[in-house]
Design a protein around this nucleic acid. Structure first.
Lengths: 186, 186
DNA sequence: GCTTGCCCTGACGTTTACGTAAGGGGTATA
DNA sequence: TATACCCCTTACGTAAACGTCAGGGCAAGC
């Protein structure tokens, strides 16, 4: 599984950085000419600058430069989203890179396209298998919950945690960064 | 994602080892008294002995011993299945260990049970989130497939790979080791 | 009795995906 | 002009999950 590190807490705190855009016209996420600093993306997606630079090193991102500074386009941002989702579903960075490369190789000729198609289908099969695994794991855990609930109901019903705590989780997700339109496959 | 290593090919080959059981009465997987050698489990689940010993080191398995040699029960086998599935859905070994521990702690008292229940629910939420991620990734890739297919149909229809190749994949899965009854939650 | 095959226990090596300084520079604010 | 906050590169450090010897033991078959 994805190795989890302890990431400095400050990167989670939006107040830590001034995110006011310099130019109001460039605020709209849907405007393709919108650009982002490295830290803006870091705060939005809860990753560190080191991670973004690392992805660049590995050939998954290639932001433009303003002098020395990196400038990320909406396209870069969309790629980053795909990278992070790829990680969450268990792809390694090199696998994600392959996929992104396949997306880009529109010019690779018909043979390349055929190979890409095959790989895509393989990935899909793997993901469907994984979806089944997750389905099974959820079932297992839910059975465990039922058992524990029965046990608690009989012994200490006062300790029964109600599921309401997860409302906040859901709310947080809804309030989170809106899913911007992906511009990759265009 | 789960880091993938190059595992010696021979562990995939069932013919590599003589798996004939010494005692026919002990052949039936459903018989709880059935036991397994380390290699039998390795061949069945395509893992190495090193991995099983590693899981034991980390407190996820504790097979009995016959002298020096490890002897795995059907319960150990069921745990191994859960371990491997946990890995496939992205849990780290220590997370899997936590879950397995929670399953075992029937005697931990009501407070422990309440904590377990909470953790189980958290896991379930995480898994549902992940299921959504996978759903999204599948959709993305399928859109990519459609694009590639259109492109190929126009340029080189002869190169279009048909999906029949995946029949074999499915067949292989059906012919695979039967899912034995899990004896953990009993 | 020697080889073959399986088992064991250390213990060091490896890959992935970053973390964490160290050292240096630009800009704005007090 | 000092401080704060941002950026950069280079480089060494690290946790997870095993791989890979090295060294030794027990049982079967030739």
């Amino acid at each position: 599984m994805p190795i989890e590190y302890s990431r400095p807490e400050r990167y989670n705190d939006a107040r830590y950085h001034d995110l006011r855009p310099a130019d109001p016209r460039r605020t709209d996420l849907r405007r393709p000419e919108r650009s982002f600093t490295i830290r803006q993306l870091c705060v939005e997606f809860s990753v560190t600058p080191r991670a973004l630079r690392f992805y660049e090193d590995k050939g998954l991102l290639f932001p433009a430069r303003d002098g020395m500074n990196r400038v990320y386009s909406t396209r870069d941002r969309a790629r980053l989203q795909l990278i992070l989702r790829g990680k969450r579903v268990g792809f390694s960075l090199s696998e994600i890179r392959e996929i992104l490369d396949l997306y880009d190789e529109k010019d690779g000729g018909a043979v390349q396209a055929a190979r890409s198609l095959k790989k895509f289908r393989e990935r899909i099969e793997a993901l469907k298998q994984q979806r089944e695994d997750i389905e099974g794991a959820i079932q297992n855990l839910e059975e465990g919950c039922v058992r524990l609930e029965r046990q608690l109901t009989e012994s200490r019903p006062d300790l029964l945690p109600r599921a309401e705590a997860y409302d906040s989780v859901l709310r947080a997700r809804l309030d989170g960064p809106a899913d911007p339109t992906l511009v990759l496959s265009k």
